[in-house]
């Protein structure tokens, strides 16, 4: 409450910002994913056909979870969910990644490069690490799924 009051007061004090103030603005594509993130949520981690990738960016403290549900017969990703706590670019990168990998084979999904995500979302150089995080997340999810399947076949 106090904070809002102060904020409003200070806003009226500086009602006319000078044009020289630099504003870091996101690209419309990032804002779109950020405002309407696709496939937010979680699958049951224990599901034998779900692979979970959990990665973090140590420099900024972001954390990203990306889960894939795989159809064993076709080897394709049938469903994807993500949850990201971080900046707009990190949310957009993971949201875009979930759309991109749906219906793909594990091999194709694993070969997606961060540069593709960065290009699609027009990420500035300071935000490239967000797209790298999304690439790490899908790779980590795929290897988790493969590890699960290998363990299941070994015990069968």
């Amino acid at each position: 409450m106090l904070r809002t009051t102060i904020f409003n007061a200070s806003r009226s004090l500086f009602a006319k910002p000078s044009a020289a103030i630099a504003v870091r603005s996101y690209h419309p594509k990032v804002i779109d994913h950020y405002e309407r993130p696709r496939n937010v949520g979680s699958f049951n981690k224990a599901d034998p056909f779900v692979g979970t990738g959990l990665v973090g960016a140590p420099a900024c403290g972001d954390v990203m979870k990306l889960q894939i549900k795989v159809d064993e017969a076709s080897g394709k990703i049938v469903d994807v969910k993500f949850k990201t706590f971080g900046c707009g670019s990190a949310i957009a990168s993971s949201s875009y990644m979930t759309e991109r990998v749906r219906g793909m084979t594990l091999e194709d999904a694993g070969s997606i490069k961060n540069t593709e995500i960065a290009k699609e979302l027009c990420l500035p150089p300071v935000k490239l690490h967000c797209s790298m995080l999304a690439e790490d997340a899908i790779k980590s999810a795929i290897s988790d799924y493969k590890r699960k399947r290998a363990a299941a076949t070994a015990s069968a």
Binding site: V55, G56, A57, P58, A59, C60, L128, H129, M132, L133, D136, S140
Partner: peptide, 8 residues
């Protein structure tokens, strides 16, 4: 700690 490092 580098920006490009990722934590696993």
């Amino acid at each position: 700690i580098h920006e490009t490092e990722s934590l696993n």
